[in-house]
Simulated scan of single mutants.
Amino acid sequence: MSLTLTRLSPALGAIVEGIDLAAPLDAPALQQLRQALVEHQVLFFRGQDLSPQAQRDFAARFGDLHTHPIYPQHPDARQIMVLDTEAFDLKDNAIWHTDVTFIETPPLGAVLAARQLPPQGGDTLWASGFAAWDALSDRLKTLLDGLTATHDFTKTFPLKRFGLTTADRERWEETRRTHPPLSHPVVRTHPESGRKALFVNAGFTTAINELPEEESQALLAFLFAHQSRPEFGLRWRWQAGDVAFWDNRSTIHYAIDDYRPARRIMHRATILGDRPY
């Protein structure tokens, strides 16, 4: 198999052609994709025909899959998370975030398939943690390297929004019990490339542990604004049959919520990673 990659921006992103994600992939093809993912950080595939089961099976070739504790699952493939604006309020995705950093081994990556799109809008933004780190001054890099930050699922999933029914509240309380706040490095080293990336995000990061509260919040506010600068990212306009595969270890993303009351349905398979260092 010969893949053709077209780079989308200086910071990250490439369109991949010459592959059918629903077809069996041999080891060399998987290695090509893995290398492309590390290099480009987010890969886009046009014109794919992936069933939920095929999407699950493709993602599982890269690692064990995560089942989200809050979002609904597809009835035919429980490892596929269903993001349906008609069934679930998804405004928490309209914030710059890295997926599921509230667990000890945050995802390696995710595979997102467009199932139903609004007539206009509903684009997704991605930005590179590598580019954000590289652009910092040496003095600030010295300060940040070695610091840790707290990540808490309740920042994006507060009880007042996700505990409206008895069943929802029980699920939220169980998630709170099994996913207490935990710490990750502010700057993580990518396990495959060795590059450094900022690893804080507005969705789940609540504090820098080694700093007083006021300094922590001021520095986080700067980092959240810095990492979302347009020169570090790209904007993807979805089409029917599109699939995105991104490296969750080195990126943040933002699902633009500009299409209501139109409906948008996306399916996501989430691949577990390793402990950040």
Rank of each mutant, 00 (worst) to 15 (best):
L144R: 10
S51D: 07
H40A: 09
R260L: 11
S9I: 02
E231Y: 08
F157N: 10
P106K: 08
P185N: 11
D247W: 06
M1V: 04
A131G: 09
I70H: 08
P24T: 05
A94E: 11
V200P: 00
V186W: 08
V200Y: 03
E192K: 02
D26Q: 00
T98L: 01
L5E: 08
H184M: 13
Q55N: 02
Q120G: 06
Q217G: 09
A54N: 03
G18V: 11
I95A: 15
D258P: 02
R7D: 14
E173T: 11
L198I: 13
Q53A: 15
T148I: 02
K91Q: 15
L25E: 07
V200R: 01
T85D: 03
F102Y: 15
A207I: 02
Q55I: 05
R115M: 02
D89M: 03
T175E: 03
L8K: 12
D274N: 05
R237A: 15
E215M: 15
P24S: 14
V38H: 05
H179V: 04
E231P: 04
P185F: 05
A135K: 13
D49M: 08
R195F: 01
T6D: 14
F224D: 06
R171W: 11
P185A: 06
Q41D: 05
S216F: 07
E39L: 13
K155W: 13
P28W: 04
G146M: 11
G121M: 12
H226K: 08
S137T: 14
Q35P: 00
E210D: 08
G47R: 14
L136Y: 06
F199S: 07
L219T: 04
T156N: 09
D26R: 00
E104R: 14
P158R: 10
K196C: 04
R264Y: 01
L33E: 01
L140Y: 09
L159N: 00
R268N: 10
V186I: 07
G273F: 07
L43N: 03
I19Y: 04
G233L: 07
M266H: 11
H97T: 00
A110Y: 07
F232P: 03
T270W: 04
L140D: 02
S250R: 04
L5C: 12
Q120F: 05
G241N: 03
T205C: 13
H66R: 07
D64V: 03
R237Q: 14
A14H: 02
P107A: 10
L65A: 10
N93G: 10
R263S: 09
S9F: 03
A94C: 04
L112G: 06
F199N: 06
G163H: 07
T154Q: 15
K91Y: 12
R61G: 01
T154D: 07
P212F: 05
A244W: 02
H184V: 04
D20S: 15
S250V: 15
W236E: 04
K141E: 11
G273A: 02
T148D: 01
E170F: 09
T6N: 14
G122F: 06
L234R: 08
Y71E: 12
F102M: 02
F130K: 01
R260K: 11
E17W: 00
E173M: 12
P158K: 13
T142Y: 04
